[in-house]
Simulated scan of single mutants.
Amino acid sequence: MIKPDGYLEPFEVYCDGTDTSGGWTVIQRCIDGSIDFGRDWDSYKTGLGFLSWEFWLGNEKLSFLTNQKKYQLVIDMTTSNGSLIRVSYDHFRISDAFSYFKLVNLGQYSGETDVVTLCPTNMAYKNCSTACQRTCEAPGICQDDVCTEVEACVCRDGYFLLGSDCVPREQCGCCESEGQTIIPEGEFNVNPRCTRKGVCTNGQISWNETYACSPNAVFNQKITEEANLRFAVVSFIIVILENLLAF
């Protein structure tokens, strides 16, 4: 039990006395994901979880605790392949509820920066043996060449790689059944014969089957090499049939 200066009642904390650098008051512990940390403001203000397993101590308690004297923050992490990471800051302090528990100070940093990887937006650091990287071009297929190391940053579940960014499925554009992107979101596509026009909206293609280009229109739509090949094969077959019929 501890009672920071100004706090109304004493409260229980989890103390880790196994570390060789001394005893530590643990403010958060994540072990197996059994506690959902995606909570609201009040949950984080008062604290959540169980001190005996996974928990967050609570922003209000932490505010009183870190403002009574100078405290050091130490973060211990274990990666999925068993690597141990420790980083520390020598002056950790947050504000009160009136200031929305804003991080006021961290102080001087020290740690193993060579093994800490910060992933871009909408990406997560995952073990390559279980990572499934999906792309906008092939949303239904896990890419095999995601990793060159044991672990790597890949798109989170529900996001797809578009260039170097991970985007939601609706931002990928519209894809054919085999997964090839043909129309960017919000744009349209006209087939080479000018007999059909498709508009991409929220990842779905709406086709106008009665569409017809104006007599003076010039077709200037880029089509993929695969589409070009299919069109060339069909044209070649038509020419052969016409020649056969000529006999």
Rank of each mutant, 00 (worst) to 15 (best):
M1G: 05
D5P: 09
L8M: 14
L8W: 11
P10G: 10
F11W: 11
E12H: 13
D16H: 14
D19G: 08
T20A: 10
S21W: 04
I27D: 01
Q28S: 13
R29L: 03
R29T: 00
C30M: 15
I31N: 04
I31S: 05
D36K: 06
R39G: 04
D40G: 07
S43P: 03
G47K: 08
G49I: 05
G49V: 06
L51Y: 09
L51E: 08
S52R: 15
W56R: 02
L57H: 03
L57K: 00
K61H: 09
F64R: 08
L65T: 01
T66K: 09
N67D: 02
Q68G: 09
Q68Y: 15
Y71R: 00
D76I: 15
T78W: 13
N81E: 10
I85M: 10
V87W: 00
H91E: 13
I94C: 02
A97Q: 14
Y100Q: 10
K102V: 11
L103S: 08
L106Q: 08
G107H: 01
Q108V: 07
E112D: 11
D114P: 05
V115W: 12
T117A: 02
C119E: 03
P120F: 01
N122W: 10
T130C: 14
T130V: 10
C132T: 05
Q133V: 06
T135V: 11
T135L: 07
A138Y: 04
I141N: 12
D145S: 15
V146W: 03
C147L: 03
V150D: 02
A152T: 02
C153Q: 08
C153N: 15
F160M: 01
L161I: 15
G163E: 07
S164Y: 13
C166N: 00
C166A: 04
V167H: 06
R169T: 02
C174R: 01
E176A: 10
E178M: 13
G179Y: 02
I183H: 03
P184G: 09
E185G: 04
F188I: 05
V190E: 00
N191C: 00
P192Y: 05
R193K: 12
R193W: 14
T195N: 11
T195Y: 06
T195D: 13
K197W: 09
K197E: 15
G198S: 04
V199C: 01
N202E: 13
G203Q: 02
Q204M: 09
Q204P: 05
S206L: 13
Y211N: 00
Y211R: 03
N216P: 10
A217I: 13
A217T: 10
Q221V: 14
T224G: 05
T224W: 09
E226I: 09
E226G: 11
A227L: 07
N228D: 06
R230A: 11
F231A: 07
F236N: 07
I238K: 10
V239Y: 15
V239G: 11
I240W: 05
L241V: 05
N243D: 06
F247H: 14
F247T: 10
